[in-house]
């Protein structure tokens, strides 16, 4: 049976018009998220993950950013055609977002409870008292002990993990269909990280929402996502189910990422790294964008850029050595 997609991003291109030139931060990116599914989006800093997520929320600062092409279909409707007022009704209500920094994502001058009930009152048309009850219920749901008391506390009175729980409570308070989590655990220490991921997994099933999980940590993806999109320099370079990706990475970049995860077993020694760094988006290398760092780079990789090849089973890869055709210009 064909699952219906909740979110479909088609050929999304985002350009930044800066004083130094035009930067294509996101280049014809396509992916989709099914209902109830967690999609992981992986890549190094600056590969366009966050820009993609902000584009879905229509929160890119414009200028300098502009979405120059593509469609973002959410429940069949193109978000790029929506007015600002329509988007405001979607944000925080049908699509919500969690940010990386729980320390700074909460307003220091309001109690956490008021920040949660604010969104509830805005979107759910509940009275003040009902919104407070709902906020307390949400705090309990995300595992905050003594929620009635915590409701009246200020963000600085909470630890990072607690604040991220509050952020999750806030994001889920209006029963969104889609949760975009932009590096939700990066700023937290490892034990709290696991708790937060576990919490997100449980709540996802309970609320029946889909999650777009953006991270640079493949370990986080392994724990939560069913499918993974790997991005490099603004392009999707590989898409696969989580098992396939970890067992048999097709793109040399994915393989490099997997090798650079520290492991408990196996040989001791220095950690593997991918040589070089992400190319300057103002000055991309000719041919495949990964070729200067690729251990398998051939002549054709330096001349032409590969197109994304459909491998069946939802698997896609962008690499000449895996059979991708050159991209038509």
């Amino acid at each position: 049976m064909e699952e219906k997609s909740l979110l479909e991003v088609k050929d999304l291109t985002v350009k930044f018009f800066t004083d130094d030139g035009v930067v294509t931060a996101v280049d014809r990116v396509s992916f989709d998220i099914k209902r109830g599914e967690t999609l992981g989006m992986v890549g190094e800093s600056g590969c366009g993950k966050s820009v993609t997520s902000l584009a879905i929320m229509r929160l890119l600062p414009s200028p300098p950013a502009r979405i120059t092409s593509g469609k973002i279909l959410f429940e069949g409707e193109d978000l790029l055609q929506k007015s600002e007022a329509e988007m405001r009704r979607i944000r925080g209500n049908r699509i919500s977002m969690i940010f990386q920094e729980p320390m700074t994502s909460l307003n220091p001058v309001f109690t956490v409870g008021r920040q949660i009930s604010e969104a509830i009152m805005l979107h759910q048309k509940l009275s003040g008292k009902e919104a407070v009850e709902r906020a307390v219920e949400m705090l309990r749901l995300v595992g905050i002990p003594n929620p009635e008391k915590r409701y009246h506390e200020y963000p600085h009175q909470m630890s990072g993990g607690m604040r991220q729980r509050v952020m999750i409570a806030m994001a889920l308070s209006c029963n969104p269909k889609l949760l975009i989590a932009d590096e939700p655990t990066t700023a937290l220490d490892v034990t709290i990280q696991a708790q937060i991921l576990d919490l997100m997994n449980r709540l996802k099933d309970r609320v029946g929402m889909s999650v777009l999980l953006i991270t640079h940590d493949l370990g986080v993806v392994a724990e939560t996502a069913r499918r993974v999109v790997v991005m490099y320099a603004g392009q999707v370079v590989e898409e696969a189910s989580c098992e396939d990706l970890f067992e048999n990475p097709l793109h040399p970049y994915t393989a490099g990422l997997l090798k650079s995860i520290p492991r408990l077993e196996g040989e001791k020694g220095r950690l593997n790294v991918i040589e070089g760094s992400v190319p300057n988006p103002l000055n991309l290398p000719p041919g495949c964008r990964f070729n200067p760092r690729c251990p398998e780079a051939a002549d054709i990789c330096r001349k032409k850029s590969p197109a994304l090849l459909e491998m069946g089973n939802g698997r896609r890869v962008r690499c000449f050595s895996r059979g991708s055709p050159p991209e038509e210009v």
């Binding site: 979607i90 977002m97 700074t104 994502s105 806030m170």
Partner: peptide, 24 residues
């Protein structure tokens, strides 16, 4: 980030300025 977060919650500009920026 909390202003960004407020925007992601669907708050209007006026509300963001009055409730989240000015009190700070």
């Amino acid at each position: 980030e909390y202003v960004e977060a407020a925007r992601a919650q669907g708050l209007s500009d006026a509300r963001i300025i009055l409730r989240h920026i000015l009190p700070n």
